[in-house]
């Protein structure tokens, strides 16, 4: 119904037809939505992709039912510290992490379902002043944290009983690491973006810091989302959360940048600008999957970009229930999760 009431044509060449509403999850608790994500859940021999929703004091797991409906399976109740982020673990079943804190992450917890005991559990993974966290393949979690002048970049392995005793540390750069991305096609490589706009590369096996490369002063506050290695170059998808509409393309929302790790030289490959009509500086909060990016703009509109074309390909304006607050890609097919502040999550097929 909501989809039918949206204007069919938003801008020249941009139609909302490229996003089709598939289903809606409505949380009756009335709690304010903080984040949304997905996790694989396997119980009684059945493996399903479920939706995870977070509000400040609890996290809920939703499984698909018949006729595009969703049912809440379990709610983990958290303590006094508010939930601020869901940290999905790629290619992992029955496990998801959450970050809790006030303005910064102060704690990471593991939420899990144990098929052996058929019970839902939670355990503490890490505490500290945590600046960035990312779930890695093979049930691992990387985080950067600060204690005075010291920065620690740590990888922990996650088990059903919580974190394993042995963590691995990566050599920290001097600058604070604000985001991480695994490198596709290169199993032991990890990249990060820093507070002073550099890209750093680590060897995950040895913990070595291999290279630090500057992104460029003309593009402040870059956040890395994805990276892949090809033909001797490292391609990194960066977002610029404080993008500004500009005819000269000087302040794009997303960029694909090619780095030569041997020389630390870089070259922009494709830039994706803000959709027309979004004037003024925008704060982008988004997600990247393969070559697609999605972000909520300051106006409460969700924009989708094709990063290879360098174009915004779909817009989802605020619905009847209000502005969009969150957006994430599901790991399978082109499915976009879109959350409103009242806890309603809509699933769109792109």
């Amino acid at each position: 119904d909501v989809a039918e009431q949206l204007p069919p044509v938003l801008h020249d060449g941009l139609t909302e037809e490229s996003l089709q509403l598939v289903s809606e999850l409505k949380d009756s608790s009335g709690s304010c939505a903080v984040d949304v994500s997905t996790m694989w859940w396997e119980a009684a021999g059945c493996r399903e992709l479920c939706v995870v929703t977070a509000c400040e004091s609890s996290v809920s797991l939703w499984k698909p039912l018949a006729s595009d409906r969703w049912g809440k399976v379990h709610t983990w109740q958290l303590g006094q510290i508010p939930v601020i982020q869901i940290v999905p673990l790629p290619d992992t079943c029955n496990l998801v992490c959450i970050a809790l804190g006030e303005l910064e992450i102060g704690e990471i917890r593991l939420l899990l379902y144990s098929s052996e005991s058929d019970s839902f559990k939670q355990s503490l993974v890490k505490t500290g002043t945590i600046k960035a966290v990312l779930g890695l393949k093979d049930r691992r979690l990387v985080s950067s944290s600060r204690s005075g002048q010291e920065q620690q970049v740590e990888i922990v392995s996650l088990l059903e009983t919580g974190r394993s005793k042995d963590g691995q540390t990566l050599m920290p750069p001097e600058e604070t690491v604000l985001a991480f991305a695994e490198v596709e096609g290169m199993r032991d490589a990890l990249v990060g973006t820093t507070a002073l706009n550099s890209i750093v590369i680590w060897n995950l096996k040895t913990g070595q810091l291999l290279k630090k490369m500057h992104v460029g002063y003309s593009y402040p506050a870059s956040i890395c989302h994805r990276a892949y290695s090809d033909s001797g170059l490292l391609f990194v998808v960066l977002s610029h959360p404080h993008a500004k509409e500009s005819e000269s393309c000087g302040n794009p929302a997303f960029r694909v940048v090619a780095f030569n790790p041997k020389t630390a030289r870089s070259r922009g490959v494709v830039s994706s600008s803000l959709p027309p009509g979004h004037t003024g500086r925008q704060y982008l909060e988004g997600d990247v999957k393969d070559t697609l990016a999605a972000a909520v703009l300051t106006s409460g509109t969700i924009a989708v970009w094709d990063l290879l074309l360098g174009q915004c390909t779909a817009l989802l304006p605020p619905g009847l229930a209000g502005s969009w607050a969150l957006t994430r890609w599901a790991p399978t097919s082109a499915c976009l999760l879109a959350g409103q502040q009242d806890g309603t999550v809509c699933l769109y097929r792109y």
Binding site: A189, I201, Q208, L210, L233, L234, A258, N260, P261, T263
Partner: peptide, 23 residues
């Protein structure tokens, strides 16, 4: 991207940087 923009490219950059970087 041409090689002249980015300098000499090595297809084996990860192993080469790992050999050069401090342990």
């Amino acid at each position: 991207c041409s090689e002249s923009d980015l300098g000499p490219i090595s297809f084996n950059w990860f192993d080469e940087l790992s050999a050069e970087a401090p342990p």
